[in-house]
């Protein structure tokens, strides 16, 4: 996918910048983006190591089994293919909990750990498996109880009621989640059928 999108983005942007005489902006844009990527990675290195370490402790205790039991019906429905993969189940459960609690910077490391484990039993290592797609869709839908970032921004802008958005966010995020899960399930079914024919 990115082998196609990436060059198109760059080619269009560069040609447009030349035609519209916007080269100076483009120049600073290039260096700014690379800087941003480095800054993000350095921040990420910290949280990634922290949460990978914490999940590794959890994986060795009974707490992960308790969490798993709680989330079992959901995981069974969303990820029918990893029935026998305890490790993947554990990591997906932790990723879900971090997402629900609005801990974005904990959810990503935990989700990426789950991806690694799912890749181990992926039949075609070049392609995303069904479970991987479901995990990614769940993470892009960002189902959460407290949208912390946006509440912080709202109160910094002097809102009279920064938390008034929580209820509408629940409805919107649940609708988005259901839509994402439904279309993923449908596409999995459709693609499987086509492959069998």
């Amino acid at each position: 996918m990115l082998n196609l999108i990436w060059p198109i983005f760059i080619i269009i942007s560069f040609s447009y910048a030349i035609f519209s005489g916007n080269l100076q902006n483009l120049n600073s844009g290039i260096f700014e983006s690379v800087d941003n990527a480095v800054n993000l990675s350095i921040t990420m290195l910290g949280t990634m190591c922290l949460w990978s370490g914490i999940i590794n402790i959890a994986n060795n205790t009974r707490i992960i089994q308790i969490i798993n039991k709680m989330l079992k019906p959901i995981i069974k429905f969303l990820f029918p293919e990893i029935k026998n993969n305890k490790k993947a189940q554990n990591e997906i459960s932790m990723n879900m909990i971090a997402n629900i609690l609005g801990l974005g910077n904990a959810a990503t490391p935990l989700g990426l750990k789950a991806m690694e484990t799912l890749q181990e039993e992926n039949n075609n290592k070049e392609e995303l498996s069904n479970s991987m797609i479901m995990l990614i869709v769940l993470n892009t839908a960002s189902i959460q109880i407290i949208p912390t970032t946006i509440i912080a921004i709202r109160s910094s802008l002097g809102s009279e009621n920064p938390t008034s958005i929580i209820f509408p966010v629940w409805i919107a995020t649940i609708c988005a989640g259901i839509a994402g899960i439904t279309i993923t399930k449908l596409l999995i079914k459709y693609v499987n059928k086509r492959e069998r024919l």
Binding site: L2, W6, I12, S13, F14, Y16, S20, S28, G29, I30
Partner: peptide, 17 residues
């Protein structure tokens, strides 16, 4: 990936596309 992605988004934005 981050470098590549940020670059593509960055030029898309700063060029005015």
């Amino acid at each position: 990936t981050l470098i590549g992605l940020f670059l593509a988004i960055g030029v898309l934005r700063s060029s005015g596309v």
